[in-house]
């Protein structure tokens, strides 16, 4: 669904590359996670996969980028946005500024596409229910908290029903309950055939929801593979991404010979219960 081959990019008026020689292959209908320290190039990659680079930001882009069968750099932004939606990092910048209510804000993109009023209303209702923001529909987008704005920004992209969704730290402003809900929504969208690429710091939730994870460090993809394998890699500390407390606790327990050496450390609660239940049995046996 998404295929990047040997992609490198430098922003205008800079003499260094923000990304170098990136290869990425995302099959249709999967949730793929991308992790990396601040400044590693995550937002840049998100903009490349959604066509904002080069069509908005310009700069020197090389390599091949194909999303949903479209060669993005040779296409236009108008075509790109009908195939891939981008939820940007700061929700206050995603909100159009042209609308007085959340309801109108959500309908804004559909209005531009000339969708019938009745269908527009149905889709606004559906997406509001999905994200639990029905009670916000008649409020001003600017009278919302950071977390509420973030849910509106996500809803305004989901409503477009693009086959690919790219989300750049979509849960940064959300409480733990809201964060879980957004990840559950991602899994639901995946089950309906949508392909999602999620840039996140929340390792535990990526382990639970993403099939594959890629790591960006030093402007390159330095590790790729199944979520548990990549997210339990001790090099995550060095790459300033960090592992979960579950991983760190198991690693320390292994170091103190309280657990047998494993091939893959646990990343999530479920992984850890398996590992530490074994500990209990070992002791009894």
């Amino acid at each position: 669904m998404i295929k990047l081959s040997d992609v490198s990019y430098a922003y205008p008026d800079t003499d260094h590359y923000t990304l170098t020689n990136v290869d990425l292959d995302v099959p249709q209908g999967e949730v793929v996670g991308i992790v990396g320290a601040s400044g590693a190039g995550k937002t840049t990659l998100a903009k490349i996969i959604s066509g904002f680079i080069p069509h908005v930001d310009g700069g020197a882009l090389s390599g091949r980028i194909e999303v949903d069968g479209i060669n993005l750099p040779e296409s236009t932004l108008a075509i790109a946005v009908s195939h891939v939606g981008l939820v940007i990092q700061s929700p206050f910048n995603q909100i159009s500024g042209a609308k007085f209510t959340v309801r109108e804000e959500l309908a804004f993109g559909l209005e531009n596409q000339g969708v019938e009023r009745e269908e527009m209303a149905t889709r606004v209702g559906e997406v509001a229910k999905l994200l639990g923001i029905e009670t916000l529909l008649d409020r001003s987008p600017y009278a919302l908290s950071g977390g509420q704005q973030q849910l509106v920004a996500i809803a305004s992209m989901i409503i477009m029903r693009t086959p690919v969704l790219v989300m750049d730290e979509p849960t940064s402003q959300l409480d733990p309950g809201g964060t879980r809900m957004v990840f559950d929504v991602m899994s639901k969208l995946r089950d309906s055939g949508i392909t999602l690429v999620v840039f996140e710091h929340k390792v535990e939730l990526l382990r639970e929801h993403a099939s594959t994870v890629h790591v960006i460090a030093d402007h390159q993809i330095v590790a790729s593979g199944p979520a548990r394998k990549v997210l339990s890699d001790p090099r995550l500390e060095k790459w300033a991404i960090g592992t979960t407390r579950y991983t760190r606790a198991a690693a320390l327990a292994e170091e103190k010979s309280l657990l047998p050496k494993s091939t893959e450390l646990p990343v999530s609660l479920e992984d850890s219960i398996d590992v530490f239940k074994g500990f209990k049995n070992l002791k009894k046996g």
């Binding site: 535990e204 407390r245 606790a249 609660l269 209990k280």
Partner: peptide, 15 residues
């Protein structure tokens, strides 16, 4: 309050 306990508290309680 839609808050989750920290990771290791959740693990200890599950165990």
């Amino acid at each position: 309050a839609r808050v989750e306990a920290p990771q290791l508290e959740r693990l200890a309680s599950s165990l």
